[in-house]
Design a protein around this nucleic acid. Structure first.
Lengths: 232, 232
DNA sequence: CCACCTTCTGACCAAATGGTCAGAAGGTGG
DNA sequence: CCACCTTCTGACCATTTGGTCAGAAGGTGG
C-alpha cells in the first residue's frame, strides 16, 4: 500500500462530518480513543496551519475547531511545535510517492504524462499539504531540512539519472533534468498553493474539475512537446 | 521610468550598509528624515516578513534589525497591519511590470523569451517580494484581493488576448493561454520562493548565477518548443 | 533666539497565547 | 466491584506582543 493510499484510508476513517456536535456518548475503547483523537487533531491542525501558517494559528483555534478543550489537545501533543511536526510528518508521507513511477524502462511519454496527472491530482486532493509544505520551504525549510537533504534528495538524484537515461536512449531532447523537475513541481503545485490567485483570475468561485483537466492537458502538452518527446 | 527602475533607485539610495552602527550624528533635514526612515523600516520589514511571515515577525524584531526603538517604528506606521500593507504596496509596484512587454505585434519567440528572462531575474533580485506575495496568496490573498481582482486581472486578461492573437496569426500552437501564464509564473517564481529546496537539492550553499541561467535556458526551450514556436 | 513644528523614546499596559497542573471522569483487567 | 490505568478539563500562570503616551530632543522659519 502506498503512502498515499494510507492517507486516503485515514481520511475515510474520520468521524463522518461530526457536524459540530459532540456525540461522544457511546463507549469507546481506550485503544481507539487515542488514535481517533490524534488523527482528528492532526487533520484539524493541518487545515488551520495551511490557512494561517504556524504562527498565525493558535492552539485555542485548533481546539475550538476540533471541538475539544485546549488542554486536551495539549494532552496529546505536549506543545505547539510538536503538533506542527506531527502534521509535517503526516504530510510528507505522501510527498515523494509519485516520483517513484518514473523509471528507466518506461518511456517518458507515459511516465511524464502520469507524473503530471498525479501531481495535479495531489494538488487537488491535498491542497493543505501542499500549502504547508510550500510555506515551510519559503520560510527556510528548517523543519524539513532532514527530509530535503535526505530521502527527497536521493529520490531527486535518482529521477535525474532516469531522465538522463531517457536522453541517452534518444527518447527525448538533451535537456537539464534538474530544472525540468523544478518546472514540473512548480507548475503542478501552483494549482494548490496559488488557488486563490488562479480562481480570482479565472473568475470562478473555486477550482472546477474542468480547470484541473485543462491544467493537466496544457502542462503535459507543453512539457512533452517541449522536451522533444514524440507522442504519436 | 518603470516601477522596477523606481524600486531600484530607492534601493540604491539606501544608507550604505549602515553596518550595525547608529551614526545619526550629522544634522539631517526634517524632510529627509521621514522618507529615509520610512524606506529603511519598510525594507527591513520586507526581509523579515519574507523570512518569517506576518504573524511570525514581531514589531520588536523589526525595530531591532532596523536599529530603531519600537516606538519609533510605530510612530511612522501606526500599527503592524499598516506596516505590512505598506510593504505589500511597495512590492506590488514591481509585480506586473513585465507582462506589459507582451503585445500583439511582437513575435512570441521574442516576447516569451524576454518575459521568462525578466521573471527569473525578478526572482533573483527581489526574492523577498516574491516570497511575501506567495505567502499572501497561499494564505488566501485577503490583503491583495483588490489588486488580484483589479489591475492584475485586467493585465492577465489582456495578455491572454495577446496570446490568442499570436495563435490566430499562426505564430504558435493553439494552447490554453490562461494556464500557459500560470505555468510561466510558477516555473519562474519557484526560483525565489523555493530557493531553500532548490539549493539543497542542487547541493549548493546558495543559487549561483549559473543556475539562474540554466533555469532561463530550460524554461525558455521547453515553453517555446512546447508551444510550437519556431525559433530558427 | 524663540515659538512651533516633527521626531524620538522609555515606561507602561491590556490582551493574547503557550503551557501547567491537580483532580475529576472514564475505561480496563482481574 | 475494585485498584489502576488513561483520558479529560477548568482554572491558572508567565511571557510575549501590539500598542499608548507623556514628555524629551531635534529641526525650522521668522
Amino acid at each position: 500500500m502506498s503512502n498515499k493510499d494510507q492517507l486516503k484510508a485515514e481520511l475515510a476513517d474520520m468521524p463522518p462530518a461530526q457536524s459540530g456536535r459532540k456525540p461522544r456518548k457511546e463507549r469507546r475503547a481506550l485503544a481507539d480513543i487515542r488514535q481517533e483523537n490524534v488523527t482528528h487533531i492532526i487533520s484539524t491542525a493541518e487545515r488551520l496551519f495551511a490557512e494561517k501558517g504556524f504562527s498565525g494559528t493558535t492552539l485555542a483555534a485548533i481546539a475550538e475547531v476540533a471541538n475539544l478543550p485546549k488542554a486536551n489537545v495539549l494532552y496529546y501533543f505536549h506543545n505547539k511545535a510538536g503538533l506542527y511536526q506531527a502534521v509535517l510528518d503526516h504530510i510528507l508521507l505522501v510527498w515523494m510517492d509519485d516520483m517513484k513511477s518514473m523509471t528507466e524502462d518506461v518511456h517518458p511519454k507515459e511516465a511524464l504524462r502520469n507524473y503530471i496527472l498525479a501531481k495535479v491530482q495531489q494538488s487537488k486532493e491535498y491542497p493543505h499539504a501542499s500549502k504547508i509544505f510550500a510555506t515551510e520551504v519559503i520560510h527556510g525549510a528548517e523543519n524539513i531540512r532532514e527530509l530535503l537533504g535526505g530521502k527527497l534528495k536521493q529520490q531527486f538524484l535518482d529521477t535525474c539519472r532516469v531522465i538522463r537515461s531517457w536522453i541517452a536512449k534518444g527518447w527525448m531532447d538533451p535537456i537539464n533534468p534538474e530544472h525540468l523537475l523544478f518546472m514540473l513541481w512548480s507548475s503542478t503545485q501552483t494549482y494548490a498553493d496559488f488557488s486563490a490567485q488562479i480562481t480570482t483570475l479565472l473568475g470562478k468561485a473555486d477550482m472546477a474539475d474542468e480547470e484541473y483537466e485543462n491544467a493537466v492537458e496544457l502542462i503535459t502538452r507543453v512539457v512533452l512537446k517541449g522536451c522533444g518527446i514524440r507522442t504519436v
